[in-house]
Simulated scan of single mutants.
Amino acid sequence: MSSPPFFSVITATHLRSALLARNLRSLRAQTFQDFEIIVVADALDGGTASVCAELLREHDVFIKRNGRRGPAQSRNVGMSLARGEWVLFLDDDDTFAPHHLQRAHERITAAGEPAAKVLFSDFDVLTEDRSKDLHTALSRSRVNLGGHPVESLHVKNFIPNNALLFHRLVLEGSTVDPHLESQEDWDFLLSVCQKAMPVHYEGGGAIVHKDYVNPGTRRGTTTAANDTTVVVDFLHTYRRWRAPTPELQAQRQQLMQSVGLALPVAWF
């Protein structure tokens, strides 16, 4: 077996071959190439198989898994297969700019930088209409995260999944909960935060793609249903990962009060 790569990039996909092709092309275009791609599909069609056959390399992995559909379990399968020293998640509808892995590698190996087991970068938000040309952006904006106090992750997530990098050792014992209807990325991140808090670095090239024109099928049929699901999952996550300080407890209480839910501060 070849030596382990520096990075493992895990891509969860579900019957979106055009988006997956864009995702994989962004990885193949990376200026730093010591990485493996692990594509985990929860369903399979000809388009997905064709894209993987074209764009994955010999040492990359493609697997169609069984069981409950959704990205959570696909990410868990990907983590179980990852050989890299550092692990990244890049869902099928998102991409990396060509310099992303290069910049991450430079930060990890830089002399004089504080050691970290979890890193996160700034990112771009690109809006698009996926019913039209995927190469045409409606808008693009940069989101700088350096000013965010990292402790606020205990109240609400502000880091998208593809802007994070995890050392493989910090992932031991952590899994993505497939039973959550929302907030599974945040719940997973908080489980990792019990071992190591994320450290910010500048210059990352994570790109979050959003289609507000064609949102697609979502769980729940009304805004109220979706809002209720989010609140329930917030409460579940709060109870699983208690706030480490009274100040953060109070911030959690205030956030729930803002959506009409009054609970004593000790609950958080």
Score class of each variant (00 low, 15 high):
Arg239Phe: 11
Trp86Arg: 00
Arg69Trp: 00
Gly216Cys: 02
Phe120Gly: 04
Gln257Lys: 12
Pro246Arg: 09
Gly147Pro: 11
Val192Trp: 01
Met1Lys: 09
Ala116Pro: 10
Gln183Ala: 05
Arg83Phe: 01
Pro5Ala: 10
Thr237Pro: 10
Phe166Gln: 06
Val213Glu: 14
Val51Trp: 06
Glu36Met: 00
His209Thr: 11
Leu145Lys: 06
Val9Ala: 01
Cys193Val: 08
His148Pro: 10
Glu184Ser: 11
His105Cys: 07
Asn76Cys: 02
Arg140Ser: 15
Ser8Phe: 03
Arg242Thr: 14
Ser174Tyr: 03
Arg69Pro: 02
Ala225Trp: 12
Ala116Val: 02
Ala29Asp: 02
Leu180Cys: 07
Ala262His: 15
Ala82Ile: 02
Ser50Asp: 13
Leu169His: 10
Ile10Pro: 12
Leu255Asn: 04
Phe188Ala: 02
Ala206Arg: 04
Asp91Ala: 11
Gly147Tyr: 06
Arg103Tyr: 08
Thr245Ile: 08
Thr127Arg: 09
Trp86Gly: 01
Ile159Asn: 00
Ala163Trp: 07
Lys117Asp: 14
Val199Arg: 06
Lys195Met: 08
Ala82His: 01
Leu27Thr: 04
Thr11Ala: 11
Asp42Asn: 05
Arg142Asp: 12
Arg240Thr: 10
Ala43Pro: 09
Val125Met: 08
Glu54Arg: 12
Gln102Ile: 05
Ala115Tyr: 06
Asp233Phe: 10
Asn23Val: 00
Leu56Asn: 06
Pro149Asn: 11
Gly173Leu: 03
Leu44Arg: 04
Ala266Arg: 15
His99Asn: 03
Val118Gln: 08
Asn144Leu: 14
Arg69Lys: 04
Val199Ile: 00
Thr237Ser: 11
Gly147Met: 04
Val77Gly: 07
Leu138Val: 14
Ser131Ile: 02
Trp267Phe: 14
Pro71Asp: 04
Ala110Asn: 05
Thr228Glu: 12
Asn66Ile: 08
Ile37Arg: 05
His167Glu: 03
Gly112Arg: 03
Leu171Pro: 02
His179Val: 11
Cys52Val: 06
Gly147Val: 07
Gln249Ala: 14
Leu24Ala: 05
Arg25Phe: 06
Lys210Ile: 08
Asp133Cys: 11
Met79Gly: 07
Ala262Asn: 15
Gly47Val: 10
Thr222Phe: 00
His236Phe: 12
Asn214Ser: 10
Asn226Thr: 13
Val176Asp: 04
Gly146Thr: 03
Ala137Asn: 09
Phe234Asn: 13
Leu165Ala: 13
Asp177Tyr: 12
Arg57Gln: 14
Asp133Ile: 13
Asn157Ala: 07
Phe158Arg: 05
Arg75Phe: 14
Ala262Asp: 15
Ser50Val: 09
Leu90Ile: 02
Asp227Ala: 15
Leu164Trp: 15
Ala43Ser: 15
Asp187Gly: 08
Lys210Gly: 03
